[in-house]
Design a protein around this nucleic acid. Structure first.
Length: 447
DNA sequence: CCATGCGGGGGTA
DNA sequence: TACCCCCGCATGG
């Protein structure tokens, strides 16, 4: 790599994964990686990240979104699809103005059970708002392990609010256990019973820590490019700097049909992604974050926010495209499907979204891989956990140069998302029911 | 209990 | 053949 390229890379405020051109299905993934991306908890959009194989969160295939394992019949690539978010079917507003946004249980049975419960606030039924962010199908995340790296690729743009994060859910769960075992019955107990661990967010934010220190719950005032690209970031000993782009992003409403800037749970840092093309409205954030949110910072190393540096990471509303009513969940969700603004975004013809759908295949990649790379050791078992790399034999290192080809990766790379103005005005027609404007997630503070 | 993974298998285009 | 989803099983916290 030339010096110029190195510099370029250093200056480029872009994730490592997105800088390289690759697709999760490629026979050969980039090799000799020198940098890794810090773990991203809330990925959204058609993004790619490359984590260190030592990154525990990556090893666990973690995601803030409730993702469930999906069988793609390919042991090399783990595929997970988004379950959406559980909300009050009535869309009631909690005392603090927030709304209920529970994390769908991953386990099918647990989820069914969960949905039978009532909204602790208005006693209405709870409803699962499915994700249809990927051409009508749930957003999918793909994980693939290569000896020294864990490749992550996401396809689709979540068209629903964020559920509480896994850590929050767990924190509450444990919290519930503690309480349930002591006090007999209190008004609050009712809520607990109603939602199980889901609504007991009584723990102070501090308690809700992520598996790794990498998850800044408190955002430091600044982050240098160095820290961002520091491989150690992904190793668990991350410096206390802002480095979780997606994670720090407030799920801002999308222009035209946003959730009116619904935020994630109160425990999340108040940061916004003003550079998010989808963020039509802007939020005033703390000076700290504001600094990394100014338009000019989109190219500044100060912010590691993927949302601010990578257009592909934050595709414009157009991405919500194809959420045609004919989609899988088309009718069931009268409420959401017909009124939920994000369900009906406009999608300019030939939008990246449309193109992207072209590269979403993963199933049975083995066969593909075999075709493309005879040397591939198909016999390899379980690529993910270990270092089963199917690339062991790939003596030649993968070119890290952008290859503009007809390959999936090439397509991605060549894509340039339409500037947000394009759809800043879509469908927020009058009829829009703001029931689903999520100013916040629920918060339980009637203690 | 429930999160996760795995893999068989059905349905559809 | 590609891709989606469901289901049961096993494991582990």
């Amino acid at each position: 790599m030339s010096r110029a390229e190195q510099r370029d890379e250093a200056d480029c405020v872009c994730s490592v994964g997105m800088k390289l051109t690759w697709d999760i299905n490629d026979p050969k993934l980039p090799q000799d990686l020198k940098q890794f991306d810090p773990f991203q908890e809330w990925t959204d959009g058609y993004v790619r990240y490359i984590y260190s194989a030592d990154d525990k969160n990556a090893q666990r295939h973690l995601s803030g979104w409730a993702m469930r394992n999906t069988n793609n019949h390919n042991c090399q690539i783990l595929k997970k699809s988004c379950l959406g978010v559980v909300v009050c079917s009535r869309g009631c507003t909690l005392a603090d103005g927030s709304r209920l946004q529970l994390r769908p249980a991953i386990c099918d049975k647990a989820r069914q059970k969960q949905q039978k419960k009532m909204c602790p606030n208005c006693n209405a039924a709870l409803e699962l708002l499915p994700c249809r962010g990927h051409s009508g199908y749930p957003v999918t995340n793909f994980w693939r392990v290569d000896c020294k790296a864990i490749f992550f690729q996401a396809k689709g743009v979540h068209d629903h609010p964020r559920p509480e994060s896994k850590s929050e859910t767990e924190a509450r769960r444990s919290s519930v256990k503690r309480r349930v075992s002591s006090p007999p019955f209190t008004p609050k107990r009712r809520l607990i019973d109603a939602l199980g661990p889901a609504l007991l967010c009584v723990e102070p934010p501090e308690r809700i820590s992520f598996i790794e220190p990498n998850f800044p719950q408190h955002y430091p005032p600044f982050q240098s490019t160095e820290s961002y690209y520091n491989p150690h970031n992904a190793l668990g000993e991350a410096p206390p700097t802002l480095q979780k782009p997606a994670n720090t992003r407030l799920y801002m409403g999308r222009p035209g049909y946003e959730f009116q800037g619904y935020l994630t749970s109160p425990t999340y840092p108040v940061t916004s992604d003003l550079c998010d093309p989808r963020s039509g409205s802007q939020i005033q954030v703390t000076p700290v974050l504001a600094s990394s949110s100014t338009p000019s910072s989109s190219s500044a190393p100060l912010s590691s926010s993927s949302s601010s540096f990578d257009p592909q990471t934050k595709p414009p509303p157009a991405w919500k495209e194809l959420l045609k009513s004919s989609a899988p969940y088309g009718d069931n969700h009268h409420y959401y499907s017909t009124e939920y603004p994000c369900r009906y975004p406009s999608n300019p013809p030939g939008s990246p979204a449309a193109l992207q759908t072209i590269i979403t295949t993963t199933t049975k990649v083995n066969s593909v891989l075999r075709f493309r790379q005879p040397l591939l050791s198909v016999g390899e078992k379980k690529g993910l956990p270990g270092c089963s790399s199917l690339l062991d034999d790939a003596s030649s290192s993968y070119s890290t140069e952008v290859k503009v080809t007809d390959e999936p990766g090439g397509v991605i790379k060549s894509l340039s998302f339409p500037p947000e103005p394009l759809q800043t005005k879509t469908e927020r027609t009058d009829g829009y029911d703001y029931h689903y404007a999520y100013p916040n997630t629920y918060r339980y503070d009637d203690y």
